[in-house]
Amino acid sequence: MPSDYTLELPNDLRAIEAAVSYLVERSIDAGFDADRLRLNFRVSLAEALANAMLYGNRRDPAKRVRVEAHLSREEIVVRVTDQGRGFDPSAVPDPTLPANLSRPGGRGIFLIRNLMDVVEFNPQGNSITMVLRRRRTGRERRTGGR
């Protein structure tokens, strides 16, 4: 059964782990594939929250981060919104290019884009929406069923 959750987090990096673990557990409850939760969802949500707190809200303890999640057996849709001015996601350089490989930063958005099925930003650039879909089994693909 699909479930919707909204979390209002303090702008505190220590809040990330509990929020991620909570939504991973709720996603398991919703019947989503645990393997994709452990790596793809966990990493992407943690990266999005860290970006929101560090770069969006610029570590301002007075600001908050909102997480809205729609969890079902078929897909997870999660939106992370900060209270910052936003950024241009198209301006983020590719960290895997040889010239960027030895730079310490710049891998968060890249990981999210590679681990989630759909990644979209709002026009302001202060809200990211990520979608992770259930992988259909070989039998489901052959029969066209779910």
Binding site: R42, V43, A46, E47, A50, S102, R103, P104, G105, R107, G108, F110, L111
Partner: peptide, 16 residues
């Protein structure tokens, strides 16, 4: 269990 992009970044920095 888990390394995030900041963790990867600190490994790159230490390696250098």
């Amino acid at each position: 269990g888990y390394i995030d992009s900041s963790g990867l970044g600190v490994l790159v920095s230490l390696s250098k």
